[in-house]
Amino acid sequence: MEADSVITEELNSLLNKEFGPEVYEIEKGMLKKFAEAINDPNPRWLEEAPPTFPAALVPKELLNKLFNADIPLKRLLNGSSELEYLVPIKAGDVISVTAKLTRLRQVKGAEGPTLFMFTEMTYTNQRGEVAVKGKNTYVKY
């Protein structure tokens, strides 16, 4: 019954390892560009990061490894996102992003095996305060 596992040693070896920090300087222009892209005209977002802005602070090292892993499932979708706000991210901040793969889960989907990859991110500002905690699930199918 059990389908062959698509969870390779390569993927398993990434579990619970901390990647980063990757450092992002939050420039005004970056906030404006993001607010414009999400079409949210609230003038507050010219100085402060809108709620989903952490999506732009990509932990590339981990995600590149996850998305390019040599597994038979090539298609990718975003499964879910979760953000907790502790300190506002403002223009002029320097945000360090660390990321972790916390869990891998394979299920039998309608179109064959589906792999859920659970990640956790921490966004820390230049004062060492955790500004945002994030979780994201990616789906390979």
Binding site: N42, P50, T52, E82, Y85
Partner: peptide, 19 residues
Amino acid sequence: GQMVTDWLGERGKLLKLNG
């Protein structure tokens, strides 16, 4: 997120958001 922050106004705070 915009729908929620528009509703909250300037003094309301968004603490968590998930989808």
